[in-house]
Design a binder for these strands. Structure first.
Length: 302
DNA sequence: AAATGCTTCAACCGCGCATGC
DNA sequence: CGCATGCGCGGTTGAAGCATT
């Protein structure tokens, strides 16, 4: 036996609301408030509608201070950032955007924002070759960017799930100054090849974890991605794309570089080689760098 | 101008959770 | 404690409008 229907389906109207229905609902709620019972509201307000339908109509369209129309860049950033951290918890995201409804944000994400990001990801696919082999993605010739930043205390957020890591070196790339993705950026990955370590510098020290178990720690301006998919990465978007969005990950000078370590590059399979490649020896002092890998495990970078 | 395909978004549906009895 | 009920949420649908052929 299933759950009893919330209303008499045969006697309720479905589909778009007429202006008359809107007026009735609005008038009733302005007079009596929404406190009480949505299920009984249609009867009291003389509406042939399901209570849930009334609630939805009020919350998404009729209630005061609803904001319609284009989303601003700032709103885009907030949505992207929050989606990446908490996933499709639209009501939580909506709570951060006054005047926007969860339905609005959900629609916006599904129809526009997601595509916007996919287009960007596609347009910034990094080459399969190692970075120093790519004219398009040259490594910085020096580490002045890193040296310009003060040392920031070590935040240890490495966790036990990191033990599943099996990555090895190295594919590195970086880019910056994109209107949206002005921070460092990882190309789309799949579950199978995600085993990677991402080193990023240029941002502030911080750490974060996502509901899916992913965890990223920034240590002395070097960011370690613990290797679990963030919500955006599940969709093929890079977690660190949003570092510049949120206050706690804002790049100190608006520019970040990142270096990724992948398993498919046999030339670089030790921390020393990684350090040499990306030129961050001086940044990585005193950094305990955990990678669960055949050759690299709990290795001290210093 | 008509047909077809695509996009948008309001609304619906079903499920999980909270609460009250 | 178990059940009934209502609320809130996220996923999905489909009508309407727009774009393209």
């Amino acid at each position: 036996m299933g759950r009893a229907p919330c209303c008499d389906k045969a006697n309720v109207k479905k589909g778009p609301w007429s202006p008359e229905e809107d007026a009735k609902l609005k008038e009733y709620i302005e007079k009596h408030g929404t406190v009480g019972n949505w299920i009984s509201l249609p009867h009291k307000a003389a509406l042939r509608r399901c209570g849930k339908s009334c609630r939805l109509r009020w919350l998404n369209y009729l209630r005061p201070n609803i904001k319609h129309g284009e989303f601003s860049d700032d709103e885009d950033k907030i949505i992207c950032s929050l989606f990446d951290r908490i996933g499709s918890r639209w009501s939580v995201i909506a709570a951060q955007l006054p005047g926007r409804t969860d339905n609005d944000i959900k629609n916006y994400w599904n129809t526009k924002l997601k595509k916007k990001l996919q287009v960007h990801v596609a347009s910034t696919q990094y080459p399969k070759t190692r970075p120093h082999q790519s004219a398009m993605h040259p490594l910085p010739s020096d580490n002045s960017l890193v040296q310009n930043h003060p040392s920031i205390p070590y935040h240890d957020h490495l966790n036990s799930s990191f033990d599943n890591y099996t990555s090895t070196p190295i594919r590195a790339f970086y880019h910056h100054d994109h209107p949206i993705f002005s921070s460092s950026f990882v190309g789309p990955t799949t579950q199978g090849d995600y085993n990677q370590v991402k080193l990023m510098y240029g941002g502030e020290a911080s750490s974060r974890s996502s509901s899916d178990g992913s965890c990223i720690t920034t240590i002395n301006q070097v960011e370690i991605d613990h290797g679990f998919f963030s919500n955006s990465e599940k969709l093929g978007f890079p977690m660190s794309s949003y570092n510049n969005f949120s206050n706690d990950h804002k790049a100190a000078n608006g520019t970040c570089f990142s270096h990724e370590i992948y398993p498919d590059d046999q030339d670089y399979n030790s921390i020393e080689e990684i350090k040499q490649l990306i030129g961050t020896n001086n940044v990585c002092n005193n950094l305990n760098f955990f990678v669960d890998h055949d050759q690299i495990k709990s290795e001290d970078l210093s």
